[in-house]
Design a protein around this nucleic acid. Sequence first.
RNA 1: GCUCAGGUGGUGGAAUAGGUAGACACGCGGGACUUAAAAUCCCGUGGGCAGAAAUGCCCGUACGGGUUCGAUUCCCGUCCCGAGCACCA
Length: 940
Amino acid sequence: MYYICGLNKYNLEMEYNFLDIEKKWQEFWAKNQTFKVEADSSKPKYYVLDMFPYPSGAGLHVGHPLGYIASDIYSRYKRLKGFNVLHPMGYDAFGLPAEQYAIQTGQHPATTTEKNINRYREQMDRIGFSYDWSREIRTCDPGYYKWTQWAFLKMFGSYYNNTAAKACPISELEEIFAKEGNTGVDAACGDVPAFTAEQWNSFTELEKSNILMQYRIAYQGETAVNWCPALGTVLANDEVKEGLSVRGGHPVEQKKMKQWQLRVSAYAERLLADMEELEWTDALKEMQKNWIGKSQGAEMIFKVANTDPAEGQAAEYDMTIFTTRADTVYGVTFMVLAPESEWVAKLTTKGQKEAVEAYLLEAKKKTERERIAETRKVTGVFTGSYAVNPFTNEQVPVWVSEYVLAGYGTGAIMAVPAHDSRDYNFAKTFNLPIIPLIEGCDVSTESFDAKEGVMCNSGFLTGMTVKEAIPAAIDEVERLGIGRRKINYRLRDAIFSRQRYWGEPFPIYYKDGIATPVPEEELPLQLPEVDKFLPTEDGEPPLARAENWTYKGYPLEKSTMPGFAGSSAYYLRYMDPANDSALVDKEIDSYWRNVDLYIGGTEHATGHLIYSRFWNKFLYDLGYVVEKEPFKKLINQGMIQGRSNFVYRIKNTNTFVSYGLKDEYDTTEIHVDVNIVVNDRLDMEAFKAWMPDFANAEFILENGEYICGWAVEKMSKSMFNVVNPDNICNSYGADTLRLYEMFLGPLEQSKPWDTKGIDGVNRFLKKFWRMFWNREGNWVVSDEKAAPSELKALHKLINKVGTDIENFSFNTSVSAFMIALNELQDLKCCKREILEPLVILLSPFAPHISEELWSLLGHTESVSTALFPEYVEAYTVENTFEYPVSFNGKMRFKMELPKSLSPKEVEEAVRANENTAKYVGENGIKKVIVVPGKIINVVC
RNA sequence: GCUCAGGUGGUGGAAUAGGUAGACACGCGGGACUUAAAAUCCCGUGGGCAGAAAUGCCCGUACGGGUUCGAUUCCCGUCCCGAGCACCA
């Protein structure tokens, strides 16, 4: 056993038996519900939230709890500071992996999910988190998804009023339409023709429904979607990276489909503007800014002149384009349409018809990935038509090319090859003219894209700087009535349906083709049972297999909601998880308000964190929540990577050569399980037993040892570098795991896990434990008054740890504990006056050992409910420090010196204080830098 | 290509309103205790040179410049690694 070893010197009583201690206190916390909180408290609130996990079958590895440990330390610290801390946990339980596993094995996703959740819970419990588990939620629980469906119905029943800049009930719109038609309405909507009140009143129910659908915040619409054939479902933009699905890495293609969507784009401006007040990292804000992609410019109408009248086509079509560089309009030498643009069919002349159709067909066949891969390849085809530049009246050819995107702006552009690199490449490829518009720019080899310089060749804009010319050009466009100022956003509406089984069903049925909500009182609409989790033979989603998937005889919607549906408002549900009559009670929401500290990975920057903000703002508009932003402060913990080990097999043999000698042979590098390697030394017997192939392995050693090579890689099963937190808890304890994860490096940085350093923090805990006993195992804590040097060490630590926690610099606070311990050991300190505050201070980091020592110190209350401020005040002693400022372990102090002093007098003044001095002053004050004994420099 | 973050010993990392670089920990080397191992404790540990020694000197924070009495920290340029976006007009 691990603790037998100290027997000859130390009494068993005083050994740090973490297994027993940790079990004891985890049971104590559970039994006493130590971390249960209620809203009706007189204390100030603080809400600390972790991004809840998707419970995968693989369980947790040591990388997963990093953020949870950090948030737990912060929560415990805030409790010590007197806050009423809401710190809940739950599971994002709907999702693809469980469903795919179900397809393969026939096991119901609910079963595997339940199993995985239990495993997660076990693993988390061993680490000693201070969650209020009475608030646990699971997104797949009908009692929870009732409120996901409820929110969807609210969105279905709302439209976005641009004038009021908020969501409003759609019933308002119906009234307005009946009275005055839609011409006076400024709302976020799809393509809707103008109509009068009379027309509206004469429409059929279906027509009315179709029009209203275009205004709803949750609406059904035909758009180009990311279709993943391998998964058999559509995906949102953030679920696709580089043309492959994020889950599974399958190719994704563009397809036009009718899908449920959320009108996130209506909130683009508010999502952008409200970021200002958030305490998020600049990097993350930047990512969201990019994703929202606001650009200011103008829409401009180009008339189209058919130069081929013999074909009998209509002579003119108006073509609207979007540009941010209205100033470059004199340099337009051609126009380009996206292949999907509706103008393509209109503008293609008979002579070009064949070529254009061939091009479109080719473009259509390509997957998104191929399109991206061929980014450099310039392709395009001439439509045969010409557009008229409204400023020069010159005719320019209209082309079709893949480099113009249908989804952005109007799907058509004016091409200015001199000042846009994409237009430039196109012009060079197809030999189109390039007209430079900025004085002195050289466009012989590349375009000049910068928005600087003085305009030339540009009519009335000539002589202006680019910055002046842009607004001047737009003013002129508006004056001529050929366009207007326009702000465009890249942010797309979120595709909200998935052709899957394991998700929330839509509370929508189709009555004579009209999408109709299931009444709110009948929610939740429960997920039906199906015989198989696959799509039907005729390509319908799995829900089509359910018997009687109808409401009052009408067919129910067969797709389900995406993963982000359940995670968009979960932080609200934690506040009031059992409420059956509201998502969250008004009063309770006014107490907890929003999340003060949110910790999670950066991978949700453009998905969850946008959707959640949108969802919250929508609920805010309707008055269901009090805060317009869900997450005040956000910390992104870094990833913990794996540290893989390698052995080197000599080719075609079963002989393995040690790392240092491998270059003398022709070898193959093979991953080896890090759990049979200690300190890069291979356990050769374990290696032989590891896999049958290696049973007869032979080794060429260095100094009698087999040294493995190593590399930092992603932590994954296939690299054999996964470290399980359970193993660490078994051999070192949860407190050591917690401290070590923090000690590893800055929270927000990615760093490799290497178990070999863990002895350091483990030793620290053992030493700390031992301070309370003498060699014979007798309790030695005395009530003697502490010496100034001891108090100094303690207060230095209190100060350091306090500021470090507030700055989320947990690695340096762990170091500070080690330094303080060394100092106190040197002083042979074992006084209650010092040790008691030390135990409190350590409790957020290492709660189990702290609880045990706290109770041994004679306290009957848990250290988790102790109050930190009282102790700081009780133990703060005036003039503990000999010098006012401590820096770098050496003493420095500030001195204010009048300017009139000579260098010599300065030196004397400094010497009078005989130690180290630093003063860097402004406003005529001297700058003095001194080290002990000698003055380095004095500047007057 | 654009945006952001970063580059410090054998390793993880400390230290930036500019002021003794390498805290703390791992690893390594040496020693004590032990029949032995483990555990524990003590000493040393960026590189180089000189010295018997205490010690002294030189070089060192990716590279090249600059500002400064003084730069890991600020500025300019280059290289490298990571993350995000990627034809967004």
